[in-house]
Design a protein around this nucleic acid. Structure first.
Length: 260
DNA sequence: GCGACAG
DNA sequence: ATCTTGTCGC
């Protein structure tokens, strides 16, 4: 057995990789990929089970955010969480969960819980995934990681609405749109890859339905809900990863946490 | 040196 | 992310 790598050694290697990924992500934003209106969305999120590690879910919705199906991947994350390096921990398992839904719809956009280019090296988890999957991707995060916050509005009569934006302090570039999803909940929306900030913002505004989810666009909300419920189910011993993969639990009741 | 720090 | 009771507010 080899001595485990120093945390800082690992960190330095991954930081270097991210500088290159970030450059690719920014370049990709100009390249056309979304020619028509998207037909479907795929929301990606992960929860954690004490017994089995990460539980990743990809939730497929139609153009209006109605859930159609989902797929699951379970496994131990490769590294611990390090701020700024989330993608190296969660993107692999999310990528796996996504595979089963890849061909289900032509003109799709991938939505990820976390940032896109609103990241110190323009390489948030949504950017990593968009590039790896070669699909337009958008990041929606609940908290800021990088960028200077500019407030444009303190509220609105009807939610969602635009609250402000996130500016890159070292390049005077817009990184994200800050949106009031509901009265007290803001989210940060940034392009991951192959999409403009403008289109990303428009899409997220169309997928925020306060009566369903107070905070997240519905595809991510469903992925979050389902993954959390499966993680709990696993830890209680009421289900196991094999059964899950066989589709025994393949029903939408996973969205309501009272079941299973 | 000190504070910040997605999930 | 996750651990967790009651509790302040719309």
């Amino acid at each position: 057995m080899r001595k485990p790598m120093e945390r800082n050694t690992l960190r330095n290697i991954l930081l270097r990789a991210q500088y290159r990924i970030g450059t690719l992500a920014l370049d990709s934003l100009n390249k056309p990929s979304l020619t028509e209106r998207p037909e479907c969305f795929i929301g990606l999120d992960a929860s954690y089970s004490k017994k089995y590690g990460a539980v990743a879910v990809a939730a497929l919705t139609d153009a209006y955010g109605n859930i159609k199906s989902y797929s699951i991947a379970v496994g131990q994350p490769p590294i611990e969480y390090i701020p700024g390096l989330l993608a190296f921990r969660e993107a692999p398992i999310l990528y796996t969960a996504y595979q089963e839904l890849r061909e289900k719809c032509e003109n799709q956009v991938v939505l990820v819980d976390g940032h896109g280019i609103a990241h110190p090296r323009y390489a948030g988890i949504a950017s990593h995934l968009g590039l790896a999957l070669r699909k337009p991707s958008i990041g929606a995060a609940k908290r800021r990681l990088y960028g200077v916050e500019y407030s444009l509005s303190r509220g609105c009569r009807q939610y969602p609405c635009i609250a402000g934006e996130l500016i890159d302090p070292k390049a005077s570039r817009k990184l994200a749109t800050i949106i009031f999803a509901s009265k007290r909940n803001k989210i940060y929306v940034s392009p991951g890859a192959y999409i403009s900030l403008q289109k990303a913002t428009k899409i997220i505004l169309s997928l925020l339905q306060p009566q369903i989810s107070p905070r997240m666009p519905t595809p991510i909300y469903y992925a979050d809900k389902i993954s959390r419920n499966i993680a709990r189910c696993l830890d209680r011993g009421d289900c196991n990863p094999t059964a899950i993969r066989r589709g025994v639990l393949d029903s939408i009741n996973l969205i309501d946490n009272t079941s299973i």
